[in-house]
Computed example of a mutant assay.
Amino acid sequence: MHRKGEKERPSSAVLYRWIHGALARVLRDCGVECVMLDGDAPDGGRACFSSPVTSDLVFPGGEKLAGGGQRRVRGGVLHQGSIQNCLLPSGWDELLAARLAEKHSLCVDAELFPGMNARVEELLASKYRTEAWRSGVRHGRPSQSR
């Protein structure tokens, strides 16, 4: 049900195809060959990153490259995603933002809940922008190289 004058949001399936389609174009522009799946893996995607599902991106050999998850709330949709097993050049994220913005506007300052943006900034400063995180040290151990 939608409020009067409120636009109907696209389905999750449509959003996955739009976001992962834009990501696939950017990855290809960066030299990473990939395809978007039209159906789930035989096990139905039970093992997140080892078992792709519809609209996930895979390498030509079938290994999962990128996938995501969504949280839908009354005021919008939060889409989080992961890319694995490839190195991307600097600026790939700006290319993705530009691809996504070709047909849609992005709400950069929107908050799913009061104080969310402040909490994100706090996490970035205390964890993700630290030298330990950038150098690959996780939980006191260096991260595994692929």
Rank of each mutant, 00 (worst) to 15 (best):
I83N: 03
P89A: 06
G81F: 15
D56K: 05
L78Y: 03
G61Q: 11
G75Y: 00
A66D: 12
E63Y: 06
P60G: 09
L65G: 00
R74G: 01
A66H: 13
G61F: 09
L65C: 01
P60W: 11
V53I: 09
V73R: 05
G61T: 12
V73M: 11
S50C: 03
H79G: 04
D56I: 08
F49T: 01
F49M: 04
G69N: 06
R72E: 07
P89C: 02
E63N: 12
P60A: 11
G81K: 09
V77T: 15
S51D: 04
S51E: 01
R72G: 08
V73A: 10
G68Y: 02
G61R: 08
S82C: 15
L57F: 13
S82D: 12
S50E: 09
G67P: 03
H79F: 14
E63I: 07
A66K: 10
L57W: 15
G68D: 05
G69L: 08
S82G: 14
Q80F: 01
G67A: 14
P89I: 06
L65R: 02
V58E: 00
I83F: 06
S55C: 12
H79Q: 14
I83C: 07
L78A: 02
V77G: 07
T54E: 10
G68R: 06
D56E: 11
Q84P: 00
L57E: 13
R74K: 07
G61D: 15
S50D: 07
D56P: 05
F49E: 06
Q84L: 09
V77S: 10
N85F: 13
R71F: 03
P60L: 10
R74Q: 02
G76M: 12
Q84R: 15
G75P: 01
P60D: 12
D56N: 11
R74S: 04
D56C: 09
S90W: 06
S51R: 06
L87S: 13
C86H: 10
C86M: 13
